Computed example of a mutant assay.
Amino acid sequence: MSTSARKEVDGWLGRALPGRCAFCLAPLLDGFPWCEACFAGLPWNVPACPGCGEPQPGAEAGRRCGRCLRRPPAFDRARVPLRYAEEVAGLVQRFKFDASPRAGKLLLDLLSTGLPADVTAWPEALVPVPLHPRRARERGFDQALWLARRLGRRLDRPLVRATRARDTPSQRGLDRGERRANLRAAFCVPGGLPGRVALVDDVMTTGATLGALAVACRRAGAREVEAWAVARTPLHDR
C-alpha cells in the first residue's frame, strides 16, 4: 500500500471508529486512544538502565548497567518508556517510513504518558535529533522534529534546532564503536543553550546518535542533557 493510501486509511479509521481503541477497537480507557488491556500489554521498558535505557530484565530497578558503569554515555539519563517490539515496532515503522499521522499521534501520546510529570517538567528546551537535509528530502518527513514540535507545545517548552554538519552513512549494520566513530562531530547546535535540555528521537538503538548530539549540546552551553525516545531496541534484536 502506498503512503498516500495509508494516510487515507488512517483518516478513515479516525472518522469511522471514534471512541475505539487504536489497537483492538475495544472501548477506550477514559481520555486515552487505547483500552486498558492493550495499554497494559504493550512492551514497556521496565526495568531499564537509567543511564542508557537498555532493557534490564530481572535487574533491580534504578540500577545502571555494566556498560554505563564502565563508560557512561554523553547524556546524563535516558528516558525511554517502551521497547521496540510487537505493536510498538509496527507503529514506529508506519510513522517513520510511511509518515502515518495516526501512528505518530499514538507514539506521541505513549511518550507523553510514559514520562512522569517531574520528568516532563525538567527540561528548559527540547532538541530533536536532526536528519541531514538530503535524507529529509528523500523521506519527505523528519520524524524526530515532528514528535519534538508537538511535545514542546504540550509541555510549553521551546524547540532548539540542531543541524547535521555532514551527511553520515547509515548506522544500520554498524556496531556500537563504529556508530560512535561514524557520528563524531556530526552535529552543530546553536550556542547559548539553557542549562537543561532533553534530546528527542523516535527510537534509541545503541545511543550513539543521541550521545553525539549530547556532546554538541554541552559545547553549546547545556550543563545537563537527557535522552528521550519512544522506544529502545533491545540488545538481542540489534
Rank of each mutant, 00 (worst) to 15 (best):
L174S: 05
N182H: 06
V197M: 05
T168P: 06
G192H: 03
R172Y: 01
R172T: 14
P169N: 04
Q171G: 07
V197D: 04
P169S: 05
T168R: 14
P169L: 07
R180C: 13
A186C: 08
R196S: 07
G191P: 03
P169T: 07
R180V: 12
R180D: 14
R179K: 15
P190Y: 00
P190E: 06
F187I: 04
R196M: 04
G173S: 09
Q171P: 07
L193F: 01
D175L: 12
D175F: 00
G192I: 06
L174K: 15
G192F: 02
P190A: 05
A186Y: 01
A181D: 10
A186E: 07
T168I: 01
Q171A: 11
S170Y: 02
L193V: 05
C188K: 02
G173K: 10
L183W: 00
L183C: 12
E178Y: 13
V189S: 03
V197E: 03
R179W: 06
R172D: 06
R179D: 11
V189H: 01
R176Y: 04
R179G: 15
A181K: 14
C188R: 08
D175R: 06
L183A: 11
L174P: 06
A181Q: 13
G195A: 14
F187G: 02
E178A: 15
G177N: 09
N182E: 07
G173Y: 14
L174F: 11
R172P: 00
F187L: 04
P190Q: 07
A185W: 00
G195C: 01
R196V: 03
F187A: 05
R179V: 14
L174M: 11
R180A: 15
G195M: 01
A186G: 09
R184D: 10
G173T: 04
D175A: 12
G191M: 04
G191A: 12
T168Y: 10
A185G: 14
G173P: 09
Q171M: 14
P169D: 13
D175N: 15
T168G: 06
G195E: 08
A181C: 14
S170T: 12
S170C: 03
G195V: 00
G192K: 02
R196W: 00
A185H: 10
C188Y: 00
Q171K: 12
Q171R: 13
A181H: 09
A181N: 02
S170L: 04
S170G: 13
G177I: 02
R179F: 10
C188T: 11
G177R: 13
R172L: 11
N182I: 08
R176C: 09
P169A: 15
G173N: 07
E178Q: 15
N182F: 03
L193A: 04
T168A: 15
R179H: 11
P169C: 08
L183H: 04
R172H: 13
E178H: 14
P194W: 05
G195F: 00
F187D: 00
A186H: 07
N182S: 12
D175G: 15
F187V: 01
P169G: 05
F187R: 01
L193T: 06
R196G: 10
A186S: 13
S170R: 09
C188G: 09
V197W: 01
P169E: 13
R180W: 13
N182V: 12
R196F: 00
P169F: 09
S170E: 08
L193P: 04
R179T: 14
R176I: 10
L193Y: 00
E178T: 03
A185K: 12
A186M: 06
R184M: 05
G192E: 12
R180E: 15
